[in-house]
Amino acid sequence: MQNSSDSDGLNKFLIELGGLSRFTVQFFRELFRPPYEHKEFLKQAYQIGLSTLPLISITAFIMGLVLTLQSKPVMAEFGAESWLPGMVSVSIVREIGPVITALICAGKIGSGIGAELGSMRVTEQIDAMDVSGTNPMNYLVVTRVLATTFMIPILVFYADAVSFYGSYLAVNLQGFTSFPLFMSLAFDPLHFYDLIPATIKTFFFGFAIGIIGCYKGYYSEKGTEGVGRAANSAVVISSLVIFIMDLIAVQLADLLNIFMR
């Protein structure tokens, strides 16, 4: 019995992986095929930015603040308080900023795309688009995936900046460090080989959130339950993929560091 359920699970996983791969190939095929839906792309990008901005602002601010407050006693013990801004900035830019922002976006944007396309599938709006001579893959999927791919890196930069501000306030809760001095200490240990891999991986995070959300929504099962499941699995799978991608990105970034140092 156990073997049978294991093989069922493996089958489902492989079918899902195959489906997602085929969907990705289809996306790249449609990407360069006109018509190019500029307006829909800009609308999606605007909505993604607007809908996540408050959540990202609060989370990033708290992230910078808490990280600094938590690290402060340890750093103080070693008499290395002046390294605090640098340590926090490296953690935020290299790892915490991209990953936390991507996870928030997976929850907020991924589920939104999954639910939106899922309900469009269930109410036959995608079929209606198809029969009116509009390619829904081009109009719905390409625009959304491109929007997430380009918006997540921008949101990550924004989240990093807000985190820095949170960290600056935390440093100043006890004692005084001027803003220029704080920024100088924060940027001092940062190098391009910290920034470039961290930025590149955010494009991949954005792509994963978009393509998985669209895939789950586009092939949503019928009924309201199907829409719920599409939204839910879009979040779960894209979050998991973000962690896996991050793991690979860290290994590649380490290799890059070795060559560039």
Binding site: Q125, D127, A128
Partner: peptide
């Protein structure tokens, strides 16, 4: 379409 399928 049966359910009209208007873009909501």
């Amino acid at each position: 379409f049966q359910g009209n399928a208007l873009y909501d």
